[in-house]
């Protein structure tokens, strides 16, 4: 099967004026500005299959947005190429716009002073959505995501969660094949995030829409994606499944052991004893030591009744990747 979204050696360079500080600097800038070239995106390649939800992670200024802007057709890459749903997006941005839906968490497309339904009507005219498709989609979102009760409310009176759901519904009205979500859960509380995660999973399953999820929030990735791309300083530093990521990068493993009777904890340089009171022991291993080395040590100090191993949480893995 052909991938629906792919990038080959995608690269974008910007020239920026470097501002100097202070009064002397300001006068200097006036006459001789210093310019510098910035590698915003450096040789990124990947492909996404139809129907996948792929996470796109990276700290601020890592090049996430620049990549997305090239994929959506706003920017033309300096070199390399991209393809989305059979089109080269930056060559035919307007045609490409019909194939994609984009939601910016921080930039609304809704009409602030008007009821939600007006924004939908606007989308209908903008994307030339046929009446039948429009009605069908409207009823789909009304039934499943509580959009019907807010249809007549002015957008400015909606809660952040409602607004985000409306934004996503609006981006899906013209049946796009790829949906780009840029920080969709920003500013939401736990409940709001939960609802939004459900909605995203649901439309992915019902509509078979491919989703690229840009986020800071590791929780979004953990709940929604099976595959993740991590980008830092313009380069792809990890690309693959989440389980593999944890296995490869997560070295912090917690062992909770319940012994039959109280015993002394293990004494090894590579094992930290977090807790060892009576029968309950909690060990922490921060080095890359294989299971077959640790297991015999645990069994050696006493008879084991119960035993669990906890993988590291994803955010810890992320922190480690960025600091490496």
């Amino acid at each position: 099967m052909n991938p629906i979204l792919s990038a080959e050696h995608l690269t974008k360079r910007f020239t920026v004026v470097v501002g100097r500080k202070g009064l002397a600097g300001a006068v200097g800038n006036l006459f001789a500005p210093t310019k510098r070239e910035i590698m915003a995106v450096n040789d990124i390649s990947f492909s996404v299959e139809e129907g996948e939800i792929v996470g796109f992670l990276g700290p601020n200024g890592a090049g996430k947005s620049t990549t997305i802007k090239m994929l959506t057709g706003i920017l033309t890459p300096t070199s390399g190429s991209a393809e989305a749903a059979g089109l080269v997006p930056y060559q035919r941005p307007r045609e490409n716009a019909r194939n994609i839906g984009v939601v910016f968490g921080q930039r609304s497309r809704l009409w602030w002073n008007l009821p939600v339904q007006d924004s939908f009507e606007y989308t209908k005219a903008l994307y030339q959505i046929p009446e039948g498709v429009f009605r069908e989609n409207l009823s789909y979102f009304s039934e499943n995501f509580g959009v019907s009760e807010i249809m007549t409310k002015p957008v400015r009176t909606l809660s952040l969660g409602q607004k985000m759901r409306t934004e996503i519904a609006m981006a899906m009205l013209h049946n796009p094949r790829i949906l780009y979500l840029d920080e969709p859960t920003i500013g939401l509380d736990v409940v709001g995030k939960n609802e939004l995660h459900q909605l995203i999973r649901r439309i992915n399953a019902d509509r078979w829409v491919t989703i690229l999820l840009l986020t800071h929030d590791v929780l979004d990735i953990e709940r929604l994606c099976r595959r993740v791309m991590i980008i830092d300083k313009g380069s792809m530093i990890w690309h693959g499944g989440i389980e593999e990521l944890k296995r490869a990068k997560g070295m912090e493993k917690h062992y909770h052991v319940l012994y039959e009777s109280p015993c002394d904890p293990i004494q090894e340089p590579f094992i930290q004893v977090v807790q060892a009171e009576g029968q309950r022991h909690h060990y922490l291993c921060t080095e890359d030591v294989p299971m077959e080395v640790i297991l015999p040590r645990i069994l050696a100090v006493g008879k084991v009744v119960d035993f669990t191993v906890n993988d590291p949480p994803l955010d810890q893995v992320m922190r480690r990747i960025y600091t490496e």
Partner: peptide
Amino acid sequence: CKIELENQLVFRSNFF
């Protein structure tokens, strides 16, 4: 005074 003076010079094309 210092801030005002600097603000005036930040956007080079605008100044000219």
